[in-house]
Design a protein around this nucleic acid. Sequence first.
DNA 1: GGGAGTGGTCGTA
DNA 2: TACGACCACTCCC
Length: 290
Amino acid sequence: MNITATLNADITPAGSDYETVRRVIEMITEDYRDQPSLDDLAARLRQPPTQLQKTFTRWAGLSPKAFLQAITLDHAKRLLRHEDMPLLETSFEIGLSGPGRLHDLFVTHEAMSPGEWKARGAGLTIRYGFHVSPFGQALVMATDRGLAGLAFADDGDEQACLDDMTCRWPNATYVRDDEATAPYAARIFDPERWHPEEPLRIVLIGSDFQIRVWEALLRIPLGQAVTYSDIAGQLGQPTASRAVGAAVGRNPISFVVPCHRALGKSGALTGYHWGLTRKRAMLGWEAGKA
DNA sequence: GGGAGTGGTCGTA
DNA sequence: TACGACCACTCCC
């Protein structure tokens, strides 16, 4: 059975649907103060309102109007409010030593040794493939130890996206193998397939500091967010928020390591390596699943 | 809103 | 090694 085809049919709109959704998100983002109506949005996209509503809701799990509310600053601030649940601290106690089961995708992770990191991927074979995802073309990269990379590209930008990822581990051997990476894509973007009994294996390749930051991100549950300074504080270096931002920005397994759940202290989305629109898309999509 | 301070990383010498 | 530039930040005026 063709997993990609199943994925398309099940949860992922065709590529052009992401384009539609992306444009809706952009319009909502630019004009959210005017609270654009469904009719306004549909008119600008030259689509019937009912069809747009259907496409968008199928993709996000919530209507354009609900989505509009989900990506406003107020909502972001609510995600950040954790006085009744000191997120990172409690997660820390539950167990750093064991596999990172706290992640909603049920991830077990291992880190590359410092030696392997210094070798910049030498001796490592990385299989990669492009797959349709709710957030555009997804570049999936895997070693035999598990998922090592996940990146996103708009149509036509696949090569730039691949270059961006391969230059991180320039000495690795890269093999295009869509068949090997398709099961990862199928699973990652379908919450129905997130099961604790079959954790997703991921491999973190990065510096010591980066890995500590990425592990902190893995402890943020679906529908929650933390600030860069929260993470810095949790690492015992409360003034290192800017360094945390830089490390978050180097996250090689976008979405799975939920870097989109890191926000500025004001609740503003600040930046995202694969585009702010995509960060909004992820938060909105999660708002529909949480 | 903008300037200063921040800590990790990377390129260069 | 050492230094400077670069950052998905934050604080303070």
